[in-house]
């Protein structure tokens, strides 16, 4: 197999506080291959965004990478300084966030913003950059791109702005795109358009995508593989049909049971008792054990087995097995 575009090895993010060190990302390892969409799911506070921000060197202080490695196309990038990291972000890593306005400069026309980015990273002339900006807007489905290239961001609807952001993220032809809740603020019909667009562009160009979302439906629609995070740790990872269709980790099972669309016809939704613990008060052993219906005698002492990049699928002592699934 060829080298993955992105590799995380035991990535750990720490936040020092007065009450001790918090670990919002705790030894997380996974790979994303070229042309692959990895969906990262989990509930609020699971550490999804923090992991993505660590990769692109945009952690807000006092959070910092405290351990592990990040590799992009065979180069280690977690130790790069500010300036090389900034260059890398535009050129090799594109970013799409929930609020398109955070990525757009309100004082520049969308065409100028895209052209600037192209000029900064690709050896082309100014007129060539403008032509490419128009082509990029056209490609993401902005109607009459040639006429709208000189408009300002506020003149676009929310869905159209997110298209512009995608054009901006992809214009320097990055090998990795990090999309953090890119459709959370959008209506379903626009969400479907944006997901289809991301999928198409990344397949065509072989871009690797880290798609961060709390929406299992979006993951089902878009991702090739899924990583489920709980309390800063990777709970389960695997192909989308496997993880969503036959989850092994008790947390993933619970998550699927609580999702109305996944438990069709049930009068009551399956509840996971309690709530995700705060980082400052993580339980001993497996962080999920107080809520877990499958916990065994060792679960409150032994930390759950950790998932290596090429290891098993669920970080659990008593995962749901294939035979159990067949009996159910």
């Amino acid at each position: 197999m060829s080298e993955p575009t992105l590799s995380l090895r035991d990535l750990t993010v720490e936040i020092p506080t007065r009450h001790g060190i918090l670990r919002p990302v705790d030894r997380v390892s996974y790979d994303i291959a070229a042309g692959e969409i990895l969906g990262v799911v989990g509930e609020s506070g699971a550490g999804k965004s923090m992991a993505g921000n660590a990769v692109i060197g945009l952690l807000n202080r006092p959070a910092r990478i405290a351990g592990g490695e990040v590799w992009l196309n065979g180069t280690r990038i977690d130790e790069l300084g500010r300036e090389p990291m900034r260059r890398l972000r535009g050129k090799q890593i594109g970013m799409v966030f929930q609020d398109p306005l955070t990525s757009l400069n309100p004082l520049l026309t969308v065409g100028d913003q895209i052209a600037e980015t192209i000029l900064e990273h690709l050896p082309v002339s100014r007129s060539e950059a403008r032509a490419r900006a128009i082509a990029a807007l056209d490609e993401v489905g902005i109607p009459a791109a040639r006429d709208r290239v000189d408009s300002y961001p506020h003149a676009f609807s929310g869905g159209m702005r997110q298209r512009v952001v995608i054009a901006l993220a992809l214009c320097a032809e990055p090998s990795l795109v990090i999309a953090d809740e890119p459709t959370t603020a959008l209506d379903v019909s626009v969400q479907a358009q944006i997901i289809a667009l991301l999928k198409r562009l990344c397949r065509e160009r072989g871009t690797a995508v880290m798609l961060v979302t709390h929406d299992m439906g979006v993951i089902a629609e878009a991702a090739d593989r899924v990583a489920v995070m709980y309390a800063g740790r990777l709970a389960e990872i695997g192909p989308v049909a496997g993880v969503l269709g036959a989850p092994r980790h008790p947390y993933t099972v619970g998550l699927m049971g609580s999702t109305p669309g996944a438990s069709r016809g049930q009068r009551r939704l399956t509840q996971i008792p309690g709530a995700m613990p705060r980082l400052g008060a993580l339980p001993q052993g497996c962080a999920f054990h107080p809520r877990c219906p499958r916990r065994g005698l060792n679960c409150d002492v032994d930390p759950a087995p950790r998932l290596d990049a090429d290891g098993g699928r669920a970080a659990c002592w008593y995962p749901v097995t294939e035979t159990e699934k067949a009996e159910a």
Partner: peptide, 11 residues
């Protein structure tokens, strides 16, 4: 609307 809504069995 129904066709656009993300489905859990959509993979």
């Amino acid at each position: 609307l129904f066709a656009a809504a993300p489905r859990m069995d959509a993979y």
